[in-house]
Amino acid sequence: MTPVEAHTEGNGAAPAAAGAPMLELRSIDVNYGRVRALRGVSLTVNEGEIVALIGSNGAGKTTTLRTISGLNRPSRGEVRLRGVPIHQLGAERIARMGVAHAPEGRRLFPRMTVRENLEMGAYARTDRAGVRESFERVFTLFPRLKERTSQLAGSLSGGEQQMVAIGRAYMSNPQILLLDEPSLGLAPILVDTIFEVIREINARGGTILLIEQNALLALKTASRGYVLETGNIALSGPAQDLLTSPDVQRAYLGM
């Protein structure tokens, strides 16, 4: 998938450095009051990759995504999108630069229709034809949503809501997609559907940073992975290596 020009409407932001990774976190610290949620987290996502971030509850996975999309502010460290520092920008600016976030708990607009939710995903876009194309793509990826366009998002099933959440993020035609627990609370068959779509998006060139409790599924889907433990990156490497790592197997794969 090709990044749209409108996304790099950098207002004084440095131009994207050629060859820089799509997303780079450098020694990020995040505090909630006196509680330290992240300590020195560094990670890299290259263009066209699926990167999985795994870890137990409370390890800081969601905080990492929130920090990338600007909902939390790091007290130390840097977040760079294609080499451009974005950690000082507001969440709205970051979204407009091409970071799409399908957040924990889906966070749909419950009293708006499916179509309106998707429209909101494309809120920052001005290319009408492109938006129409994105609608078509979302409906191709999730045919079920096409039947439900005028239904209120709050009345959908959990799986359908997750589809809308991913679809809404995808509607912005993003540089990178941040997915927070897309499988949470879904029936196994729906989990398969969702992950098929994730692979499909990636196959079309989409860059994805994925958070999952289901470490096996995440690592099978991803090309690389990071393991987060109480705010630190404990392990990182190619997904295959992590899958075979005894530590990971014991702690996260239940083997």
């Binding site: 600007g70 909902l71 969440a91 799409a100 966070r107 749909l108 607009f109 429209e119 809120y123």
Partner: peptide, 22 residues
């Protein structure tokens, strides 16, 4: 567009933020 932005902001402000709504 603006009206929908208003409704979405009212329903979930943070979700509206990550949609790039001012």
């Amino acid at each position: 567009r603006l009206g929908k932005a208003m409704r979405s902001t009212a329903q979930d402000r943070q979700a509206a933020l990550i949609c790039g709504i001012n």
